[in-house]
């Protein structure tokens, strides 16, 4: 299979610097199709922003004068806030559009919205949509760069990058680690992006879920499948939990929340199968008592959940920085922007 839909634009042939390092795609639409060097490069840049964000003066003027539009067709607090903060810390103007309430209800199509916004010359569009492929469709109609902030059950690339950054900072590496991704794999864009990223970076990835919450032929993505959570967690370095959406109870995917928690909820008993220093991750927001026990979630020695949020801002700053580089360099050359 040719993963052409990961990052739609091919990398230009002559990277600046000449050492082949960098990230030269116009958009960030997905992890699938990115190579280990590109991912590593983004993580390296993100690392520098982690340090900056811990200082009192968090602000840089790197993207001064640029406009970022957060275009969310699906409600979100965390991801939207994280991008907003990332944009502001780099000095760009940020506008939030939560459009499920406005034009879409009036029958305006996704492409109409794209064309309308494009006329306002945003430099960066951060887009979330409930349909897989919608962000790619929109990216074909705009001039600025587009970051996928989650499309349906397809991809959520910045989440996978922030998870990778968290893992790398805690464990010193990604390659060779065993990562168990647990819960509703079928409906999860976070799971897909993480599977692509972690397998690309050389981790061993397991998925742990009941058969009704696994997509067809998921093993073809290079993962090992487990239905028994204790066996799936055996000797894992990382336990990555996914949010179970309550509406899944209606689609005959599961008999009850109680039964799901019994077999797939992360508690200390199941966690004991993993390595003693195994890290617990969750993309948030958590359903305590559904996919994760409260005691486990709050265990500061094991849980990296707060750190994931912190890494999120740094990773998004790195993405904004890297994706706008070409435009900024061109303007500098032409003597346009400061």
């Amino acid at each position: 299979m040719t993963p052409t839909h990961g990052s739609s634009t091919p990398a230009p042939t002559s990277p600046p610097g000449g050492d082949g390092r960098g990230f030269f795609h116009k958009h960030l639409l997905g992890i699938e199709g990115l190579n280990p060097l590109e991912i590593g490069y983004l993580l390296e840049i993100a690392d520098t922003y982690v340090e900056q964000n811990r200082r009192a003066n968090k602000k840089k003027s790197l993207l001064k004068g640029m406009t970022l539009i957060n275009l969310f067709f699906e409600t979100s607090t965390r991801t939207r806030t994280s991008f907003e903060l990332a944009g502001k810390r780099l000095g760009c103007d940020v506008i939030n559009m939560q459009t499920d309430a406005s034009s879409i209800k009036k029958g305006e199509t996704l492409l109409d919205t794209a064309i309308t916004l494009n006329a306002m010359h945003p430099d960066i569009l951060v887009v979330r949509h409930s349909e897989s492929g919608a962000v790619k469709l929109l990216s074909e109609k705009v001039d600025g760069c587009v970051i996928n902030a989650g499309d349906g059950r397809h991809e959520h690339p910045t989440q996978a990058l922030l998870d990778a950054l968290t893992i790398r900072r805690r464990k010193g590496r990604i390659e060779g680690l065993t990562v168990a991704i647990c819960g509703d794999i079928l409906h999860s864009r976070v799971a897909r992006s993480n599977i692509h990223l972690l397998t690309t970076m050389g981790a061993r990835v397991r998925v742990v879920a009941p058969p009704t919450l696994l997509p067809a032929a998921v093993e073809r993505l290079g993962v090992e499948v487990f239905h028994d959570m204790r066996r799936g967690l055996e000797n894992c370095d990382i336990v990555m939990m996914l949010r179970l959406q309550q509406e899944r109870m209606r689609g005959s995917y599961l008999p009850s929340v109680r039964e799901f928690f019994h077999f797939y909820g992360l508690d200390h008993a199941k966690l004991s199968a993993a390595k003693p220093d195994a890290l617990i991750m969750h993309p948030g927001p958590m359903n305590r008592g559904v996919e994760i026990d409260t005691v486990v979630a709050d265990d500061i020695h094991r849980s990296a959940i707060q750190e994931q949020v912190e890494m999120g801002v740094a990773v998004r700053m790195a993405c904004l920085d890297v994706l706008t580089r070409k435009v900024r360099e061109t303007e500098l050359k032409n003597g346009g922007a400061s």
Binding site: G133, H154, P215, A216, A217, V218, L221
Partner: peptide, 15 residues
């Protein structure tokens, strides 16, 4: 169609 491609694209599928 159900299968690897549907899983990669994140699209709902029919067996």
């Amino acid at each position: 169609n159900a299968g690897e491609l549907a899983t990669r694209l994140g699209l709902s599928s029919n067996s």
